[in-house]
Simulated assay, not measured.
Amino acid sequence: MRAVLASEWLKLRSVGSTGYAVGAAALTIVLGIVWTLYVVSLADARGSIRAAAPEEGFLPLVQVSLAVLGVLAITSEQADGMLRTSLAAVPRRGRLLFAKAAVVGGVTLAASAAVLIATYTISRLIAGDRALGFNDIGLLDGLPTVLASALSVAVLALVGLGLGAATRSTAAGIFSVVSLLFVLPSVAAYLPAPWNTRVASIMLPNLVPQIAGDRLSRRLGDGVLPPWAALLVLIAYGAAALLAGYLVLRRRDA
């Protein structure tokens, strides 16, 4: 198994798409700095304002960028025939997919945590003691939400990997991830009460504040899940996508 993991790590870091995906995610740091400087200028002119936290506002950029990495980790190999070679070397398809999931999950968790923590910390240092809304709690108090956000990125990358294996299409895999992030939550908002809040509570974008016990999760009202339940739902997304990918991969030729 160690050799399979090493092989998957080598393949992931040797393709250009990995660098582009991580680089796109890292743009969050730059955008966060620009946003904070802009908000600071407004606060200096007006006294105090309430602005969105940059690590939350630009989180979708990190999520989509690294979810694309997860999709490409499997679909690029299917497109160029490398997956067939990998399966010849590792006939047990479940082991191969597990190795890909371990590498993709580890890389995206580390990259997203680094990007989000950097964005979070730098924005607070720039803000100083100005009243900007997003810096009204202690520096350490906001870390649970940042770490939950990083976990959500890693799970989304695994969702992308699983759906990429299931659809065998880069476009379909990316569309599926984008739908989970943006389309389905919008549809849930139009459901009749109380189903709108109940369904909204299990939508991917709403799981992060619930996992962290963040006060923002109160927007869901009676639909708020306890942190442990929200964490299980998040993990279930990744597990279900990987299971679907495995079932398709097992039945089809590469």
Score class of each variant (00 low, 15 high):
V104D: 02
P185G: 09
R13N: 08
A114K: 05
L139G: 04
S76F: 08
A24M: 14
P60F: 06
A131N: 10
L5I: 15
T18F: 14
N135E: 00
G106C: 07
I122Y: 12
R218C: 00
V68T: 13
P226M: 02
V104I: 12
G32C: 08
P205G: 08
L83S: 03
A157D: 02
M1E: 06
T75W: 07
A244C: 12
I117V: 15
V40Y: 07
I49M: 09
A24L: 15
V30R: 03
T85E: 01
S149L: 09
V115W: 04
T145M: 11
N196T: 13
L31M: 12
A244D: 02
A172N: 01
S41G: 15
L143P: 01
S48L: 01
I33D: 04
T108Q: 04
Y237C: 09
P192S: 10
A45Q: 07
L147V: 12
L232K: 03
G173K: 06
P144T: 06
A67F: 10
A230M: 03
G162V: 14
A165C: 09
I117R: 01
L184N: 01
A148C: 13
T85S: 15
I137K: 13
S169D: 01
D80E: 05
G162R: 12
L27I: 11
A101G: 11
S17R: 04
P226W: 01
A99Q: 00
V71T: 05
V146Y: 06
L207N: 06
I29T: 02
M82D: 08
L181A: 03
A26P: 00
L5G: 06
A171S: 14
A189K: 14
G162T: 12
I174A: 01
V71Q: 03
R218H: 07
R2I: 10
A241V: 08
D80T: 13
G133A: 11
N135F: 07
L97D: 02
S176C: 08
V62H: 03
V64Q: 03
G213E: 07
D141C: 07
A111D: 05
P209I: 13
G105E: 02
G142I: 04
T85W: 10
V177F: 03
I33R: 09
V34E: 02
S14T: 15
A188V: 12
V103M: 11
G94M: 09
S123P: 08
L191E: 03
T28G: 11
A99S: 12
G133Y: 10
V71F: 07
A212D: 00
G57D: 00
R198A: 13
D253N: 15
Y246T: 01
V153T: 14
L234N: 02
Q210V: 09
S76T: 14
G128R: 00
G16V: 12
P194R: 05
G173V: 10
V178I: 15
T85A: 14
G238Q: 01
R93D: 03
L191A: 13
L59E: 05
V30A: 15
I74K: 02
A51M: 11
L125T: 09
L147E: 01
